[in-house]
Computed example of a mutant assay.
Amino acid sequence: MSATVRPAPLTPEHWRHLAPGDPLTLHEGRPAAGTATVIEFIQAVPDSASLSYF
């Protein structure tokens, strides 16, 4: 299974230390919902709909 995700918080300084191959624990509360592995980073380009939330 694969998916594209946007980690929260959305500030890049919280995620710069990660590299492809690093494991992540996924949470939607307790207990952990699963695990993932970083495969790549892409720079997000905000669209007009997402800008309305800021």
Rank of each mutant, 00 (worst) to 15 (best):
P46F: 03
L10V: 11
T4M: 10
V45Y: 06
V45I: 13
V45R: 15
A19C: 00
P31M: 04
S48Q: 07
P46R: 09
G34I: 01
L24H: 03
L10I: 09
L51F: 03
I39V: 15
S48D: 13
V45P: 04
H27T: 07
R6A: 13
H17C: 01
D47W: 04
T4C: 05
L26N: 10
G21K: 01
T4A: 11
W15S: 02
V5E: 12
Q43G: 13
I42G: 14
R6Q: 11
A8H: 08
S52T: 09
S52G: 10
H27C: 07
T4S: 12
V5S: 11
V5R: 12
G21C: 03
P7W: 03
E28D: 14
A44Q: 12
T4E: 04
G34L: 07
R30N: 09
W15V: 01
Q43K: 08
T11I: 00
E28A: 15
L24T: 00
E13S: 09
L24S: 10
R16L: 05
A32I: 01
R16D: 08
Q43T: 13
G21V: 03
G34D: 12
A19V: 01
S52V: 03
A32P: 11
P20W: 00
W15D: 06
H14F: 03
G29L: 06
P9S: 04
I39Q: 14
G21H: 02
A32M: 04
E28P: 07
P46K: 09
R30Y: 04
G29Y: 02
I39D: 15
P46S: 07
P31D: 02
L24K: 05
L24A: 05
R30M: 01
T25S: 12
I42F: 08
V5P: 05
E13H: 07
H17P: 00
L51R: 13
Y53E: 11
I42P: 04
L18C: 03
T25C: 08
R16T: 06
T37F: 00
G29F: 05
V5L: 15
G34S: 09
T4N: 14
L18S: 05
R16M: 02
S50L: 09
A49H: 10
I42N: 14
R30W: 01
P31F: 05
Y53D: 11
F41G: 06
A49I: 06
A8Y: 10
L51W: 03
V45Q: 14
S52N: 04
M1P: 10
A19R: 14
S50M: 09
V38R: 02
G21S: 07
P9N: 03
I39N: 12
P7N: 08
A49V: 08
R16F: 01
A8W: 10
V5C: 14
R30G: 04
E28Q: 15
I39S: 14
P9G: 02
A36V: 02
P20Y: 00
A44R: 13
A8Q: 13
A19M: 06
P23D: 00
G29H: 06
E28F: 14
E13T: 01
